[in-house]
Simulated assay, not measured.
Amino acid sequence: MNEQQESTEEQSVAGLARRLVAADTGGWTPDGVKALVAGLGWDWSGTPDRPVVITGRPAGDARLRPVGTYEERYVDGESYVELAVPVASAAPDAAAQAASFRAAAQELTTELGQPSVIGSHGDMGPFYTGGPLWGAPFMRWRGSPDTLELRAGEAGPELVLQPTDPAEAWFWRQGVGEEHSIRGFFGSNRDPANAGLGFPGGWTARSWETLVRSLGDFLGALPAETTALGIKVGMPFYGRTGGSAPLLFDVACDGERLAIACFAPDTVDLAALGWGTAAQHPNTASIWSGDDPVWRVDAGGPGEPKGRALAEMLVATAKAVGVSDPADLVVGGEAEYVDGYYVTYYGLGLLTG
């Protein structure tokens, strides 16, 4: 370890963020990254293909990601695509991980302002890296030539400094139309830093089984991810049957619990499909007061929703009311506006309108 030691202030998440934002990455070349590490007062270890940066920080050492097979088509002279620095560790359960991420996010927002981009990587992060099972939220302070991201890591939140162009080029090129080609969701605000930000095309679910998987993944992680990001999601679903598309479901996640209401006609036996009433799900009263809507379910907080079971219930209900194809289950356009961000739910594979 270098003789230069980090002060208590520098050890803080905000202090680390300031240092990373101000750092000169030298184009992410080998010499540039070595100078970056030395300038941060850290030491270099490991092998060329598995470099480790010894930080002496309580949350652990940092990782450098060299350009390899999955990264090389997206770079333009860079030899590395990120420096990931753990900032906290927490118990492995979803509630603890989400709370740890949220604490780091609040400190960073106070220091850097609102992130220009928020979202979830789903189960496929940048350059095909898998994320933690509880959820994969991220916040991004976009810049040029580099971007700072708060990302959910395996043991806790991580601050990731990365060259902006490679990560965005990777994301943009995933919009190829194949099922599950993009996961998670992506939201951007009107920050001037987002000038020139590109958005990939999406994909559509071609079978009910595909939708069960994508919807299950989304619902299972939603309370943990909204808690981590500090956002609230309200998402109506409309079911096209014949010449109309009435409201069918209302998915609401207030950052603590996930609740879903159903507006199917009385001709469908909703109790048999798994729906309950306000009396059976009293925690939903904070979202829908009284007994209207009649049918609802309380799916729980971080780590509690049974994503696939919920998705199967929603799909069975949609079929029961006459929705004949996943393309006829449409997410209401109002769901795209979340706390000042325009959000695209890429991982669902559903149309929005």
Rank of each mutant, 00 (worst) to 15 (best):
G196V: 13
P200Q: 10
G202Q: 04
W203K: 08
T204A: 15
A205L: 04
R206W: 00
R206A: 15
W208A: 11
V212T: 12
S214F: 03
S214W: 03
L215P: 10
G216C: 12
G216T: 06
D217E: 15
F218L: 10
L219S: 13
G220V: 03
G220N: 08
A221W: 00
A221H: 07
A224D: 05
T226P: 08
A228W: 01
L229Y: 03
L229M: 10
G230N: 09
K232T: 09
V233M: 12
V233N: 04
Y238K: 14
R240C: 07
T241P: 02
T241S: 13
T241E: 13
G243A: 14
A245Q: 14
A245E: 13
A245C: 10
P246K: 12
L247A: 13
L247M: 14
A252E: 07
A252W: 00
A252R: 12
C253H: 02
C253I: 01
C253K: 00
E256W: 00
R257G: 00
R257C: 00
R257P: 02
R257Y: 02
R257S: 04
A259L: 03
I260E: 04
A261Q: 02
C262K: 04
F263L: 15
F263W: 13
A264Q: 06
T267W: 02
D269V: 06
D269K: 14
W275I: 04
T277K: 03
T277M: 11
A278G: 14
A279Y: 00
A279N: 10
A279D: 14
P282A: 11
P282C: 10
P282Y: 01
N283S: 14
N283D: 12
S286H: 08
S289F: 04
S289R: 14
G290Q: 11
V294E: 15
V294M: 14
R296I: 01
D298H: 10
A299W: 00
A299K: 01
G300P: 08
G300R: 03
P302R: 05
P302T: 04
P302S: 12
G303C: 08
